[in-house]
Amino acid sequence: MSTIKDIAKHAGVSVATVSYVLNNNRYVSPEKKERVLAAIRELNYAPNAAARGLRAGESRTIGLIVSDISNPFYPDLAKACEDEAQKHGYAVHMINTNDQPERMRQAVAQAREGKIDGLIVTSALAADRELLQSLLERNFPLVLAHRRLEGLDADLVESDNFEGGLMAARHMLRLGHRRIAFMSGVAGSPISELRAAGYRQAMKEAGIDVPPEWVLSGEARYAASYERMLGYADMPPGERPTAVINMSDIGAMGVLDAAADRGLRVPGDVAVMGFDDLFLAAFRSVRLTTVRIPRYELGRQATELLLDRISDANRDIRRVVLPVELIVRGTCGGERA
């Protein structure tokens, strides 16, 4: 691996000159600068960003907090963060919390210790408000992405989750369903609350009262959603829901499998819908109707906001709401995608 001394020797300049070019902190004549840059290209030199950051009092690293790294929702979002960060010379350090408060505290400790220059939080819960507020009071760059947190004055990028719940329920109603269940997500998740509110609004517009057993938590996970659907499937045919909206595509897969294990036809006996539009939703063996969440754009805009906040700590707070889209496939009937 080439070193700064190798670059200097190859370009016929001093080590100090190479350092000036790399850090862009002193004037270097155009001719010498071009020789240094040519040497860097020819020797495939990769500057040590961490070392430069230590000298400058910054790490050139941003943190990305997610709730479940095994969830296929996050790769597109994380890739967008990394793509955008790399354009500006930053690395991304991912932190998986599993929605556990202790792991969130550990991530915040890294921020306080200066190991990262800013933080994108995709998994904020109400229990995290005080912790994240402590960072904002220190003027630490922080952006909420995907999950909002009421009462926290921070930059935010989110999808239109209320509209997603509204359009999902309205679609089921247009198909003639009246007994429509909504499987919510993690307790305290603003996303779950907003989507459930949209669902309830659509049901109210249709003049349908929602009994408590129609809104149960599937935790946006396969196993919990599978168990909830078994409970619905075992209800008398005249009482069980004829349509189920799940908080996530992963949870919807659990609903589909439980329906199959109880001998229910999809969409004949029960229509099923998810959220996210993960790659598996389009599999020919699945063809899941879902609400598409713009995951890559969530990550890209969150990183853009964070880097802007790092460069200008005093600018006004910005909040971005991204549109969602209904993707109609086979699990509700009326397939179009």
Rank of each mutant, 00 (worst) to 15 (best):
E163N: 11
D160C: 07
L156M: 06
E227L: 13
A169V: 07
A206P: 00
R148V: 07
L173V: 08
P236M: 12
Y222W: 08
L132V: 07
M229K: 03
E130D: 15
L125K: 07
R178K: 15
L166F: 13
S159G: 14
R240W: 09
L132C: 06
P241C: 10
E205K: 02
A233P: 01
G165V: 02
N246R: 00
H171N: 04
V143Y: 09
R228E: 08
L152T: 09
W214D: 00
H177A: 07
S159W: 11
G188Q: 02
G164W: 03
S225E: 04
D234F: 02
A126I: 08
R147D: 03
Y199M: 01
L194E: 15
L230R: 09
R221V: 10
E163Q: 13
R195S: 10
A233Y: 10
V244S: 05
A127S: 14
E130S: 14
R147M: 04
V157I: 14
D160W: 11
A187F: 13
S248V: 07
R240A: 05
A187R: 08
D249C: 06
S189C: 06
A223N: 12
L132W: 10
E239Y: 04
N246F: 11
E137P: 00
P141R: 06
G231F: 09
R179S: 06
L156D: 11
S159I: 09
V186L: 11
N161L: 03
A223T: 13
R148W: 03
G218W: 12
A233M: 15
L132M: 05
R179F: 01
A169Q: 02
M229A: 15
L194K: 09
W214T: 00
S248W: 03
G218L: 05
